[in-house]
C-alpha cells in the first residue's frame, strides 16, 4: 500500500490533522463532548494510520517502544499524583478543591491534569496494543526465516 502516492500524500495531510483534532478533543472536553478517553484513542489512531501506510518499522522509528511505555506509566502516575497532590494540600485523595485559590479554580486544574493523565495512558496503551499485534506478525516472519536457515 505504501507505493501508492495518493495514499501516502493523503496520509501525510491527515495524520497531523488527526493529532490536532485529538488535542482539541482533549482540551475542549470541559466544554463539549470529549475528554481524555476519546482524545487518547484518536491520537493513537494517527499512529495506527501511519503504521498501516508506511509500515511498522518506520512508525517504530518515529515513535519507539520505550518512550511509549514511559508515556503509559506517566499517564497513570499523573492521575495518581494529582490525587496525592490533593492530599498534600490538606484534602482527601482526589479532592481538587485545595489545588487552586478557589475551589472552582482547583477543580479546573485537577480535571485538566486528570484528563491529561487519562489521555496519555489511553493513547499509549492503544498504540502499544497495535504495536504488539502488528509487531507479532513481523516478528514471526523473522523467526520463520531464521528457522529456515537453521534447517
Amino acid at each position: 500500500m505504501h507505493d501508492d502516492p495518493v495514499v501516502r500524500i493523503v496520509a501525510k495531510v491527515l495524520i497531523p490533522s488527526i493529532m490536532l483534532f485529538a488535542f482539541y478533543v482533549q482540551f475542549h472536553g470541559d466544554f463539549g463532548p470529549g475528554g481524555g478517553f476519546q482524545a487518547g484513542v484518536i491520537f493513537a489512531s494517527a499512529f495506527i494510520l501511519h503504521a498501516i501506510i508506511f509500515g511498522l518499522n518506520r512508525t517504530r522509528h518515529v515513535w519507539a517502544f520505550r518512550p511509549n511505555l514511559a508515556v503509559l506509566c506517566v499517564g497513570v502516575l499523573l492521575y495518581g499524583g494529582t490525587g496525592i497532590l490533593g492530599m498534600l494540600g490538606g484534602g482527601n485523595f482526589l479532592n481538587y478543591n485545595v489545588l487552586g485559590d478557589t475551589p472552582q479554580a482547583g477543580q479546573h486544574l485537577g480535571i485538566l491534569l486528570v484528563e491529561l493523565g487519562v489521555g496519555m495512558s489511553v493513547a499509549a496503551s492503544m498504540v502499544m496494543l497495535f504495536f504488539a499485534f502488528a509487531g507479532r506478525a513481523t516478528h514471526n516472519r523473522f523467526l520463520s526465516s531464521k528457522e529456515r536457515n537453521d534447517e
Binding site: F37, V41, S125, A132, F133
Partner: peptide, 16 residues
Amino acid sequence: LTAIVVGVATTALGYA
C-alpha cells in the same frame, strides 16, 4: 463511557 474503554482493553487481551 469508562465501560467501553475497559471493554476494548479486555477484547484486546482476548484476541492476544
